[in-house]
Design a protein around this nucleic acid. Structure first.
Lengths: 253, 253
DNA sequence: CCATCTTTGTGCACGCGTTCACAAAGGCAT
DNA sequence: ATGCCTTTGTGAACGCGTGCACAAAGATGG
């Protein structure tokens, strides 16, 4: 931002805003599609539309990476694909392990989006002995006992947790102790990790609840108020439906 | 985290900040756990720790809902569970349809977190005729042809898209046309919808890429610079194709 | 009834992220 | 060259979200 323009796109601008990082994959996807159609260049306006964002925001995002555009013309698609890929670290191979091979874990293992971007499923791990050896998505499921050695042998630094909530923290601890420093958590639990370890969580239940909030608002706000009045304090026997608490069950292994 | 995409700052009616809404499900989960253990009251500090947030933030969040706490004591667990549930619209039944019963769709259908919070899977829909009638998670898969009638008959307003990216927009359009006003999108595509329709997206690939970015940064930034030098920068007219030809596809199951 | 202790509710300041708006840069036609 | 047209890159303003710090509220004990 200072006056001096950078001649070198060098990685000197350490401070790429988190919000920008979160959008880079979006741009990369749109650019990849353009690349496949052999489109040579694209303007910020076109790309922004394709990515579903504001063009000014897109330009500012790219400005953090360096000046890769040509005024009056736009951005070179191939070049930008390369730059973003490099910035995201996708030019290297990232072995990942998926722990908890239930319905969700299996779905993730079969998810094509992983392998397509430098992510390689190094192993599928499950605590159920009956699952051991059973092939899922072309890979034999390994037992939890092997977790540490698998991570160590493959140099895994990214782990995906798809276990029931109750086992998540324990699995997380083992992953971290074994050397994993980035975790993608699908279990509906708050994971506590030491400094230096990144955790991102994907929670289906939460997403739905947020949608429900907005949905309720759309269908008249007056209706929502017509429900039973609140019990002020100490209501002994709670009449709510079964204690679901998505705490437990997520994926019946 | 995870994702979630909001292009609508619209939540001004009751003025509950979007960021707060996104945390309410988190509080609700922690409170439900306390409720099951019959804990009568909880302080903002304790609850904040359980939810993994700052206590001041939690108090401010609750202040948007009203003054439900008692100074010197804390919050009444049951009462708060009720208030948050009501605010999120979970006191009513939300029928949802899941479109695209592949690996992921099936996993979602089996996901316990849905039914546990007022969300009821009204139907599973797939375009493959071979899937029709086949039971998944106890429900017979319905063919896409029935989409409109299913939504209409069940008063569905929330739809979950778990189809391949290529079919997502089309499915989305049909859902919206049929009356759905909230969509949870798992397909790696930017969906365009008319005003009044909310879309949240969950993109596994993006989450991993964000993790990779931070991971790369941890493991020395110098290493990343030692890779192949940047490609061309020639603008138009030069129809040279990318040398590395970034891997295409982004398709999920 | 008063003193003390705990915990809430919030005013305030700060920093990040978004958006506008425009000068500068570069291509292109004449 | 020269002037016009397109599009980038970014300064600046604005708004949202976060976290601090503290006064007010209420419980509790003497």
């Amino acid at each position: 931002m200072a006056t001096g323009r950078t001649h070198r796109p060098a990685t000197r601008s350490r401070g790429i805003p988190e919000a920008t990082v979160a959008r880079l994959p979006l741009y990369l996807r749109a650019l990849t599609a353009l690349s496949e159609r052999s489109v040579p260049t694209v303007s910020s306006e076109e790309l922004a539309t394709a990515a579903g964002v504001n063009s000014a925001k897109l330009r500012k995002d790219f400005s953090y990476l360096g000046s890769y555009g040509t005024r009056g013309v736009g951005y070179d698609v191939e070049y930008l694909v390369y730059q973003i890929s490099r910035e995201l670290g996708l030019t290297q191979d990232w072995p990942v392990v998926i722990v908890g091979i239930g319905n969700l874990g299996a779905a993730l293992a079969n998810y094509g989006g992983f392998a397509s971007r430098g992510f390689r499923v190094a192993a599928l791990i499950d605590a159920d002995p009956a699952m051991a050896g059973k092939p899922v998505a072309g890979l034999p499921v390994r037992h939890t006992d092997e977790l540490e050695s698998i991570i160590s042998d493959n140099g895994v630094s990214i782990g995906v947790i798809a276990t029931p909530a109750g086992a998540a923290q324990q699995v997380c601890d083992r992953l971290v102790a074994a050397g994993v420093t980035s975790i993608l958590n699908f279990a509906p639990t708050v994971l506590s990790v030491p400094d230096g370890v990144d955790v991102r969580k994907v929670d289906l239940s939460i997403e739905l609840q947020i949608l429900a909030f907005h949905e309720q608002r759309k269908s008249g706000e007056d209706a929502g108020q017509a429900v039973a009045p609140p019990p002020p304090l100490r209501s002994a026997s709670d009449g709510r439906k079964g204690p679901d608490g998505d705490v437990p069950a997520v994926m019946p292994a």
